[in-house]
Simulated scan of single mutants.
Amino acid sequence: MATRPETAKKLLLYWMDASMALMFLMYASWGVLMAVRGEMPPLRTALVILLLTGFFVTFPVLMRRAFEHRPKPPPLLLVSGACAAALVPLLPHSSDLTTTWVDASLLWVALAALYLRPWPTALLAVTVVLILSSYVILSSYVAVSWQVWPGVLAVEAFNCTIMVLGMLVWRWLWWVIRDAHKSREARARLAVAEERLRFARDLHDLLGRSLSVITLKSELAAKLATKDAGRAAAEMAMVRRLAGRSLFEVQQAVHDYRTLDLEEELAGVRTALEAAGASCVIETRLDDLSPDARTLLAWAVREGGTNVLKHSAATRCAIRIDGGVLEMVNDGVGERPATPPTPGNGLRGLSERLVTAGGSFSAEPTPDGEFLLRAAVPA
C-alpha cells in the first residue's frame, strides 16, 4: 500500500502531466488548423509539431528530476530551452498581439526555476520577457506603434511570474507533505527511543549497585573458602539475599511498565493522531471496568494507535469502549491486498495477552474499506 506522501506526489505529478498533455494537444491542433487554412506551410507545420513534441516530452522528465531537491541544471534543460526558443519564430502571431504561441518559452523559464537560485531565475525571466515582448511587436504584420510595448511587456511579465510561482509552489507543496511525514516518523522513533532509555536507566538504577555488591561478595567468599569456611558461607548467604531482592525489584519494575492508565493512553493516542493530521473521536464507558480490564484495554489502545500511525494513511479514527469491548476504526486501509497481511509482532503479542486473560482480539479490513481493531476483555 502506497504511503500518503507517495500518493500525494503522484497526484501532483500526474496533474502536471495532464496539464502539459492538454497544452500540447491544444498547440498541435492549432498548428494543424493553421496548415489546413493555408496560413502555415505543411513542412513548417511538421517542424512545429516536432519541436512541440520535443519540448513537452522533456518537460515532465526535467520536472521529476527537480521535484525532490534542486539539482544542477542538466544538458537536457538546454535542449528543452532550444525547442521552446525555436518555436517562437516558426509560429505566426495574430494582429491583436496575443502571445499564446510564446507561452512555451515562459513555461521553460518556470521549469528552469526548479534548477536555479532565485536571483539567476529572476535574471533569466527578465531577459526572456524583454526579448519576447519586443519580438511580439516586431513580428506583428500590422503596423503597431511602440507605444503598446509597455502593455505587451506587462502581460508577458505577469504570465511569466504566475508560471514561475506556480511551479515553485507546486514543488513546495510536495516538500511540505514529505517533511510532515518524515517528522511524524521521527516522533514515533523518538518516543520508542525515549522509552528504551527510560527502561535502561531504571534497570541500571535497580541492578547496578546490587550487582556490584554481589560481585565483590562473591570474590570475597571465593578467597575465604579455604581460610574461613564459616565467614565464606555468611558472605554467600548475603549474596543470595541481594540476588533475591534484586530479582524482586526487577519484577516490580516490569509490573509497573505493564500497568498502563487507560485515560492517559486515550489522550495520548488522540494527541498523536491529531498531530499527524488525522481526526480522532473517542466514546467511552469505563465505570464498570476492573483495573485489570482497564490495563488490557490500555495496551490495546496503545498498540492500535501505533499501528494507525506507522502503517496507515488514515485521516480519521474512531475509538469506542463499551462493556469491556474496544473498537478502533480508521479509514487508512487503502487498497485491499490480494493476500491477507501478516500481523506484526505488536499485534500478535497483544492478541496473545488478551486471549491469555480470557478475552478476544481481531484486526482486519472491513467491507466498507476501513480497518477495524476489536479487543474484548472480561469486564
Rank of each mutant, 00 (worst) to 15 (best):
R4E: 07
E6K: 01
E6R: 03
T7R: 13
L11M: 06
L22V: 06
M23D: 15
G31W: 06
V32F: 07
V36Q: 11
E39Q: 13
M40F: 03
P42D: 05
R44Q: 11
I49Y: 03
V57G: 07
T58E: 02
M63S: 11
E68W: 02
K72L: 09
L91P: 00
S94I: 02
S94Y: 05
S95D: 10
T99G: 02
V102E: 14
V109Q: 00
A112D: 09
L114I: 06
L116A: 05
R117A: 13
P118C: 00
L124P: 03
A125N: 05
V126R: 14
V126K: 11
V128S: 12
S133D: 09
Y135T: 07
S140C: 15
V142W: 09
S145T: 13
S145H: 10
W149A: 13
W149I: 03
I162W: 04
L165N: 02
G166Q: 05
V169T: 07
V176W: 11
A180W: 03
R189S: 05
R198N: 03
R198Y: 02
A200T: 06
D202T: 14
L203K: 03
H204D: 11
L206F: 01
S210Q: 11
A225P: 00
A225E: 12
K227V: 15
D228A: 15
D228C: 13
R231M: 09
R231G: 04
A234F: 07
A237L: 12
L242A: 11
R245T: 03
R245G: 11
F248I: 01
A253F: 13
Y257R: 08
Y257N: 01
R258Y: 12
R258I: 04
D261I: 11
E264P: 00
L266G: 11
V269Y: 13
E274L: 14
S279A: 15
L286I: 15
D288F: 07
S290G: 14
S290M: 07
W299L: 06
N307A: 10
R316N: 14
A318Q: 14
R320V: 15
G323I: 08
N330K: 04
D331L: 13
G332N: 10
V333T: 05
V333E: 01
G334D: 08
R336V: 09
P341H: 10
P343R: 11
G344Q: 08
L347G: 03
L350C: 11
L350S: 09
S351Y: 06
S351R: 15
V355F: 06
G369Y: 09
G369L: 04
E370N: 14
R374W: 00
P378T: 11
